[in-house]
């Protein structure tokens, strides 16, 4: 049997159904103040009889990117207050530990190699948060069916990905500064170009968090998302920290293919006496392009999850 609207459907505000004694809940509810003529102020009801109205009464507009980003960011920041601060230390300690470890191996006078180690360790902080934690978070959200919450709100998917990433980045940013300054002091590098840290962290952050979110959303199981995120972080670690000229040929190729390399190279240049701005600009541009592409993939992944 299929369903046909009954005659009562003709009334836009049907009364509570019943017959027989009213259950107590109805009595309780009907005690509440309601307008005298329920529904009389509806903008939706046409004044003249028309068949099924083709125009919805009032369709709320979709929320703009800025407001949506802000709301996602604020919400995620609120949830992270509790557990995220220890993570900040873990992320920084890992990088600082690597710097200390390599200090015993590297020739300190080789500023190119030293700059690269410091830059690689700094970008590693970003990778830890963006690839590892974000992939984990989106993998868990997807597995729990919790993405429905975002997908049923009128917000651009990119705002969800970037807002979440930005809240994690808020905790990563101090870690990158600590790592970069500590590394510069440890290896006796110049701090004058340190301002480059800002664009590098932002662009590497967008790029790697787009990838991290996409991994988390596309992985069939949350464990795989976590695993893939950690693997990604390890690759960034090895190919970023080990100076390019010490890698075998295949390693150099892999290094060139890795988006974080361009962030590492741009930052490494900042520690050198003469900065080649053209190269730095190109490196940052590559980061930006890959970042946009990675975000696009994450957004498509989010939409795909939406209707799978």
């Amino acid at each position: 049997m299929t369903v046909v609207p009954d005659a009562r459907g003709a009334s836009p505000v049907p009364s509570t159904a019943g017959g027989g004694p009213l259950p107590r809940a109805v009595l309780a509810v009907s005690d509440l103040p309601v307008s005298d003529l329920p529904g009389s102020d509806l903008p939706a009801l046409p004044a003249v009889p028309v068949p099924v109205s083709p125009g919805a009464p009032w369709i709320p507009p979709a929320t703009g990117f800025g407001a949506a980003f802000g709301a996602v960011y604020r919400g995620q920041l609120a949830r992270s207050k509790v557990g995220r601060i220890p993570l900040l230390f873990v992320a920084s300690f890992q990088s600082v530990g690597i710097l200390v470890l390599l200090r015993g191996i590297l020739d300190v006078d080789n500023t190119t190699a030293a700059g690269q180690v410091v830059a690689g360790s700094t970008v590693l902080v970003v990778a830890f948060v963006a690839l590892n934690l974000l992939a984990q978070r989106f993998g868990a959200l997807r597995a729990a069916g919790a993405l429905d919450y975002y997908l049923t709100l009128p917000v651009p998917p990119a705002a969800v990905v970037l807002g979440t990433a930005a809240s994690y980045a808020t905790f990563a940013a101090p870690g990158t500064l600590i790592t970069a300054v500590f590394g510069s002091l440890l290896y006796g590098l110049s701090l004058s170009g340190l301002w480059l840290l800002l664009p590098v962290v932002v662009l590497a952050g967008v790029c790697l968090s787009g990838l991290g979110a996409a991994v988390g959303l596309l992985a069939p199981r949350p464990e795989l998302a976590t695993l893939a995120g950690q693997l990604g972080m390890s690759i960034v670690l090895f190919l970023g920290v080990i100076p390019a000229d010490r890698l075998p040929e295949v390693g150099r190729l892999a290094r060139d293919a890795l988006p974080s390399t361009y962030a590492v190279d741009a930052l490494a240049a900042a520690f050198q006496p003469g900065i080649d701005w053209a190269t730095v600009g190109t490196d940052l541009a590559v980061c930006a392009v890959v970042g946009v592409a990675a975000l696009a993939v994450a957004v498509i992944a989010l939409r795909r999850v939406a209707t799978s």
């Binding site: 709320p60 979709a62 407001a67 949506a68 709301a71 709100l153 009128p154």
Partner: peptide, 8 residues
């Protein structure tokens, strides 16, 4: 509050 903001 953030849900309300996301509803515009």
């Amino acid at each position: 509050g953030t849900t309300a903001r996301m509803r515009g």
